[in-house]
Amino acid sequence: MPKITFIEFDGTAHEVDVPAGGSVMEAAVSNNVPGIDADCGGACACATCHVFVNEAWMDKVGERGDMEQSMLDFAENVRATSRLSCQIVLTDELDGLVVDMPEAQH
Protein backbone atom coordinates (compact mmCIF):
# COMPACT_ATOMS: atom_id res chain seq x y z
CA MET A 1 0.00 0.00 0.00
CA PRO A 2 1.69 3.24 -1.12
CA LYS A 3 2.26 5.92 1.49
CA ILE A 4 1.81 9.58 0.44
CA THR A 5 2.76 12.70 2.36
CA PHE A 6 0.74 15.85 1.72
CA ILE A 7 2.33 19.04 3.04
CA GLU A 8 -0.03 21.96 3.57
CA PHE A 9 1.02 25.51 2.69
CA ASP A 10 1.66 26.20 6.41
CA GLY A 11 3.96 23.17 6.64
CA THR A 12 1.56 20.74 8.32
CA ALA A 13 2.25 17.24 7.00
CA HIS A 14 -0.36 14.51 6.52
CA GLU A 15 0.78 10.93 5.90
CA VAL A 16 -1.76 8.57 4.41
CA ASP A 17 -1.64 4.94 3.29
CA VAL A 18 -3.87 4.18 0.36
CA PRO A 19 -4.35 1.25 -1.99
CA ALA A 20 -2.71 1.45 -5.42
CA GLY A 21 -5.07 2.15 -8.34
CA GLY A 22 -6.74 5.34 -7.12
CA SER A 23 -5.54 8.88 -7.72
CA VAL A 24 -3.54 11.16 -5.45
CA MET A 25 -6.59 13.45 -5.30
CA GLU A 26 -8.78 10.59 -4.07
CA ALA A 27 -6.15 9.69 -1.47
CA ALA A 28 -6.41 13.22 -0.04
CA VAL A 29 -10.19 13.49 -0.16
CA SER A 30 -10.90 10.04 1.29
CA ASN A 31 -8.53 10.74 4.20
CA ASN A 32 -9.86 14.23 4.93
CA VAL A 33 -6.59 15.93 4.04
CA PRO A 34 -7.51 19.63 3.79
CA GLY A 35 -6.55 21.80 0.85
CA ILE A 36 -7.87 19.82 -2.12
CA ASP A 37 -11.28 20.95 -3.43
CA ALA A 38 -11.66 18.59 -6.42
CA ASP A 39 -14.87 20.28 -7.54
CA CYS A 40 -15.21 18.14 -10.67
CA GLY A 41 -14.67 14.85 -8.84
CA GLY A 42 -11.61 13.78 -10.81
CA ALA A 43 -12.50 14.56 -14.43
CA CYS A 44 -9.51 16.85 -15.05
CA ALA A 45 -11.98 19.64 -15.64
CA CYS A 46 -11.71 22.20 -12.82
CA ALA A 47 -8.07 22.56 -11.65
CA THR A 48 -8.98 22.59 -7.95
CA CYS A 49 -6.76 19.64 -6.95
CA HIS A 50 -3.52 21.41 -7.81
CA VAL A 51 -0.34 20.12 -6.08
CA PHE A 52 3.41 20.59 -6.40
CA VAL A 53 5.23 17.29 -6.76
CA ASN A 54 8.42 17.02 -4.72
CA GLU A 55 11.40 17.35 -7.12
CA ALA A 56 12.71 13.89 -6.24
CA TRP A 57 9.48 12.32 -7.52
CA MET A 58 9.05 14.25 -10.77
CA ASP A 59 10.37 11.45 -13.01
CA LYS A 60 8.25 8.77 -11.38
CA VAL A 61 4.86 10.55 -11.59
CA GLY A 62 5.10 11.01 -15.35
CA GLU A 63 4.12 13.90 -17.60
CA ARG A 64 1.08 16.16 -17.68
CA GLY A 65 -1.60 15.12 -20.15
CA ASP A 66 -2.96 17.50 -22.84
CA MET A 67 -6.15 18.36 -20.98
CA GLU A 68 -4.27 18.69 -17.70
CA GLN A 69 -1.93 21.16 -19.39
CA SER A 70 -4.91 23.15 -20.71
CA MET A 71 -6.43 23.35 -17.24
CA LEU A 72 -3.13 24.33 -15.61
CA ASP A 73 -2.80 27.14 -18.16
CA PHE A 74 -5.58 28.93 -16.27
CA ALA A 75 -4.63 27.96 -12.72
CA GLU A 76 -2.85 30.31 -10.30
CA ASN A 77 0.79 30.06 -9.16
CA VAL A 78 1.70 27.25 -11.53
CA ARG A 79 5.27 25.94 -11.28
CA ALA A 80 7.29 23.40 -13.25
CA THR A 81 6.33 20.82 -10.63
CA SER A 82 2.59 21.58 -10.78
CA ARG A 83 0.21 18.68 -11.40
CA LEU A 84 -3.48 18.07 -11.04
CA SER A 85 -3.57 15.35 -8.41
CA CYS A 86 -6.60 13.63 -9.96
CA GLN A 87 -4.34 12.79 -12.90
CA ILE A 88 -1.63 11.00 -10.89
CA VAL A 89 -2.58 7.34 -10.53
CA LEU A 90 -1.05 5.63 -7.51
CA THR A 91 1.17 2.65 -8.08
CA ASP A 92 3.45 0.77 -5.70
CA GLU A 93 6.31 2.62 -7.39
CA LEU A 94 4.98 5.85 -5.88
CA ASP A 95 5.26 4.53 -2.31
CA GLY A 96 6.74 7.45 -0.32
CA LEU A 97 5.51 10.21 -2.68
CA VAL A 98 5.64 13.73 -1.25
CA VAL A 99 3.47 16.57 -2.61
CA ASP A 100 3.13 20.19 -1.48
CA MET A 101 -0.13 22.09 -1.59
CA PRO A 102 -0.63 25.62 -2.88
CA GLU A 103 -1.98 28.29 -0.54
CA ALA A 104 -5.46 27.82 -2.02
CA GLN A 105 -7.13 26.07 -4.94
CA HIS A 106 -8.29 29.36 -6.45
Binding site: D39, C40, A43, A45, C46, A47, M67, S70, F74
Partner: peptide, 12 residues
Protein backbone atom coordinates in the same frame (compact mmCIF):
# COMPACT_ATOMS: atom_id res chain seq x y z
CA UNK B 1 -19.08 22.10 -4.29
CA UNK B 2 -19.82 19.27 -6.68
CA UNK B 3 -22.24 21.01 -9.04
CA UNK B 4 -22.12 21.97 -12.72
CA UNK B 5 -23.18 25.64 -12.45
CA UNK B 6 -19.67 26.94 -13.22
CA UNK B 7 -19.16 24.57 -16.13
CA UNK B 8 -16.04 22.43 -16.56
CA UNK B 9 -12.95 22.38 -18.71
CA UNK B 10 -11.17 25.38 -20.17
CA UNK B 11 -14.30 27.56 -20.15
CA UNK B 12 -15.03 27.01 -16.46
Amino acid sequence: RRHVSFGFGIHR
